[in-house]
Design a protein around this nucleic acid. Structure first.
Lengths: 112, 112
DNA sequence: CACCTATACATAGATGTGACAGGTATAGGG
DNA sequence: CCCTATACCTGTCACATCTATGTATAGGTG
């Protein structure tokens, strides 16, 4: 026993990505680093989850992307939040907080 | 897709059921009512989700069940938490709280 | 009987993971 | 100078897991 990190709650990946992109334009690798760093290494976004998620977000019109040269000199696909994506972020954020509040209520009040 | 009223965060259903059963022995319908009531109607556990979940929990040894006559006179399958189920409840509860804390950290610190 | 409650299941759909397979720039040793 | 090691960076696939939807059934009640 004794891994320190927690698994990603299903359904929160899109929210985390949208939130991260609301800070600025980033490439995929940078998004993963950002989430991992801000969560103090508790949340790790795997490649196999990240890139499909970015494709979903683009398909829904919540993000756009373009190839650009990164500061390190190499090409990378940079993602940018759209206006619809920003609206979606607001929706998902409050929906997440509502759900957590409801579950927490059950956890507290169900004490024997 | 979501008609957004009572969506359940994925991965929390087992936790909610385990917690509810920790209060006492209940039948499926009663579990759903309990969760719905404690969450002030915010969380609705659908039958189609509930019964497969109860079977999973039994298959993993976290719950047992037996047919009994309910106070209203009819037969119902009553579910009871096992010792392993109680341990699992502790694990899932703290894991859930950790995850929520980590995500909340990202949501707060990612502000532009 | 008609209706509501309660239990159960089968299928479909979405999502996250791990393993893998690339491709490119920079640093440092030979 | 050239070569290779090492980070960086993007993507795909098979797979397991979980949940919603829709359907089936049986018992009790008015």
């Amino acid at each position: 026993m004794g891994r320190g990190r927690s698994e990603l709650l299903s359904g929160t990946l899109d929210l985390l990505i949208l939130k991260t992109l609301s800070v600025g334009v980033l490439h995929g690798y940078g998004i993963a680093q950002h989430i991992r760093r801000l969560s103090s290494d508790a949340l790790r976004v795997e490649e196999g989850s990240l890139y499909p998620a970015l494709q979903r977000l683009q398909a829904k019109g919540f993000a756009t992307s373009e190839w650009k040269r990164s500061p390190t000199g190499r090409q990378a696909r940079y993602y940018r939040l759209t206006a619809a994506g920003r609206r979606q972020l607001g929706l998902e954020e409050s929906s997440f907080l509502d759900s957590v509040a409801a579950i927490t209520r059950v956890l507290r009040r169900a004490e024997p």
